[in-house]
């Protein structure tokens, strides 16, 4: 069989991959198609408005899903980011502090400065004072 083909499939370096790829697709497709067939042939179809409704907690869906959030929440997002990122990097920084070189220390301080700069900006904007 292989002699008639221009390239003998077994000789090709990608042949195994191709065989495995086909096997993987078939392996996934067989149970899916069986489930589909079973559903088509045997499952009793009784669709309805409520059965096909989006929400499934017994309550009726109200209003639009595309609600808009107030744009002023971006301040919270920025302040959260400052403290969150700072905490994530400060912890390993503190743990490895004694073994760090001068360059690493300076790099970390520059990074901190950038975040502190954001904090100062937020402070000047009056975000941190309670209304």
């Amino acid at each position: 069989m292989g002699k008639n083909l221009p390239i003998a499939p077994v000789d090709h370096p990608w042949a195994t991959i191709v065989v495995l790829l086909i096997a993987a697709v078939v392996f996934g497709a067989i149970p899916l198609s069986l489930a589909w067939l079973w559903a088509r042939l045997f499952s009793p179809p009784k669709p309805g408005i409520q059965k096909n409704a989006t929400y499934e907690c017994g309550l009726e869906a109200k209003g639009d899903a595309w609600i808009q959030l107030n744009v002023s929440y971006y301040l919270y997002a920025i302040v959260f980011l400052i403290f969150d990122v700072e905490a994530v990097f400060l912890l390993p920084f503190a743990a490895a502090f004694s073994g760090l070189s001068l360059a690493a220390c300076l790099a970390m301080l520059v990074f901190l400065l950038l975040l502190v700069e954001g904090l100062i900006w937020a402070c000047q904007k009056g975000v941190l004072t309670w209304a």
Binding site: K51, A53, E56
Partner: peptide
């Protein structure tokens, strides 16, 4: 009660 009936309606047969 309406929620219970609606939940029942949303269950597939049987």
């Amino acid at each position: 009660a309406p929620q219970v009936v609606r939940l029942y309606n949303q269950m597939p047969e049987p």
